[in-house]
Write a protein that binds this DNA or RNA. Structure first.
Lengths: 138, 138
DNA sequence: GTATTTGCAAATACTTTGCAAAACC
DNA sequence: GGTTTTGCAAAGTATTTGCAAATAC
């Protein structure tokens, strides 16, 4: 019905550690960053395994795969929809937990005729750290 | 001051045709789609040139580079900020010209301490075509 | 016991880049 | 005339995949 595969997802040590490490941070790491984090606990894990698990976990809505237009995708251990902001200076990505604006979806549906299933908001700006650094330079 | 290069951007036939073709459509084509469109008028143009021009034009805010999490980036001949919606069935991308919600930026600034420079909203849903097709199938 | 998952390495997909020749202003 | 841009081909980067061995249940 939903098109999802019906395979049982086994709890391998690799999968468990990837999920644990991802849930520890709010930094929205890339696949290679996660690889590095996980390798401290599982030195023999391969990058391919990390990619495969991130793909599987995100397609099962256990984590989120994010794309901020950079070369590498990022991952978020929190599967609940929420907004994000990225710093144009240092590239860091933070969560923005303001309430989702459902009215936007109604407007978009009226405008487009689409049947809307969700939306995402990405803010751009300069993070407090980088703003302070810039100020210090004067 | 702004970090932009000060080179003069020359009006080559390749650049002109790329821009013209991109402005003709609202389909948010990928680089290879633009390559195919342009090649009908300039059969000897190379894909590298298309990429270089799309990069240059978007970094000069003459066009927009968009990323919907697919493998390929997409391009929009309209440089004005506006929202987008993509169809989860067929992948098409449409503009949503509802007014930008600046209040969201204020809320995000309050929440995060960032200095916000802009935001983008992406809706997901099923386009009218695909909805009709799905209905017909029953 | 059997289907899923892993590590490894090779393959793929998209985009970028070096360079000499051509084009623009 | 000097700088930018092009075509071409090769390189780069991120991600995916085939396969035999290992693992989970």
């Amino acid at each position: 019905m939903t098109g999802k595969k019906n395979k049982v997802m086994r709890l391998t040590s690799q999968r468990k550690v990837i999920l644990e490490e991802l849930r520890k941070v709010t930094s929205h790491p890339t696949a290679t960053e996660i690889y590095d984090m996980v390798r401290e606990r599982l030195p023999r894990i391969s990058l391919g395994t990390v990619y495969r698990n991130l793909e599987l976990l995100s397609s099962n809505a256990i984590i989120q795969k994010l794309d901020f237009g950079e070369a590498q995708k990022r991952f978020d251990g929190n599967p609940e929809p929420h907004y994000h902001i990225s710093c144009s200076e240092c590239g860091r990505v933070d969560d923005i937990h303001i309430p989702l604006n459902r009215e936007l979806e109604d407007k978009a549906a009226d405008y487009s005729g689409y049947e809307i299933s969700g939306h995402h908001v990405e803010f751009r700006g300069v993070c407090p750290n980088c703003r302070d650094k810039a100020a210090t330079r004067h």
